[in-house]
Simulated scan of single mutants.
Amino acid sequence: MPTPLDDWFIREILVHEAPLMQFLVRSAPSRDEARDLRQEVYARVYEAAGKALPQQPRAFLFATARHLLADRARRGKVVSIEPVGDFEPLHVLIDEMSPERWCGGRQLLRRLADAFDRLPDRCREVVWLRRVEHLSQREVAQRLGISEKTVEKHIAKGMRLLAGSFYGGDGEARAPRPRDGGADMEVAMEPDGQRQSD
């Protein structure tokens, strides 16, 4: 016997299967993977709807798909560890934390904290609530008195700026320079205070 949630899911979500598949096929390496992604999107939407029905089901469906694809892309950047039959010949101490790894981890954390601190105030607040405190988009919107669409825009902007800081060139986020070369442009400086050469 279908539940009210099942009826809602069929009426509001499954009707968008064709455009969802087109979106996933464009983004996934294969059609089979797109089908797997579709099922995972459906599972996430159904689970979330069990807690609270989204006000805009189609937008929620596609936002879920985008987040899933972003998660997959991030995981794809992580170096996979191939299983090895016997660890003994490798003489690997699994739990050993070398000073280099420890220091490298601290430097990465410092870079991330610096990039996070450079985000605009409201954007930083939204990213913190959404990604660190794991509040839902709706909860963030309610807490800050803004729309869910604004939350979504701040998250996208924050992630773009953080990624630009972290992976863009030397890792420093800079304000875009005016094209007219005006006197009010911000000059990028090296850590020792010297002006960078372009």
Rank of each mutant, 00 (worst) to 15 (best):
F23P: 04
I13T: 04
K51P: 05
F116T: 09
G76L: 01
L61I: 04
A70H: 10
R74F: 14
I81S: 08
K77N: 07
L5N: 04
V92A: 11
P19N: 02
Q56P: 07
A73I: 03
Y42D: 00
V45E: 00
F60T: 01
V92M: 11
W102R: 14
R101G: 04
V79R: 15
H67K: 14
L24F: 07
V126P: 06
A115R: 09
V15D: 00
L61A: 02
D117G: 09
C123W: 04
D32W: 10
L24M: 05
R26L: 01
P54D: 01
A113E: 13
L37N: 09
L135N: 08
P54F: 12
D6G: 06
G104W: 07
A73C: 02
V127Y: 13
R31P: 05
S98C: 01
M21A: 04
P89Y: 08
L37S: 06
L108M: 11
F9H: 08
V45L: 04
S80R: 15
T64W: 09
I94W: 08
E12R: 15
P54T: 01
I146E: 01
C123M: 13
Q107D: 10
R111V: 00
A48L: 05
Q107M: 14
G145K: 11
R143P: 04
A141I: 02
D121Y: 08
V79C: 05
L108R: 15
E125S: 13
P19R: 12
R101N: 14
A141Y: 07
I94P: 00
P99E: 10
R58E: 03
R26Q: 06
T64K: 10
R111M: 08
R138V: 03
A34Y: 14
D121F: 12
A28H: 10
L69V: 05
A65S: 01
F9R: 09
D117F: 11
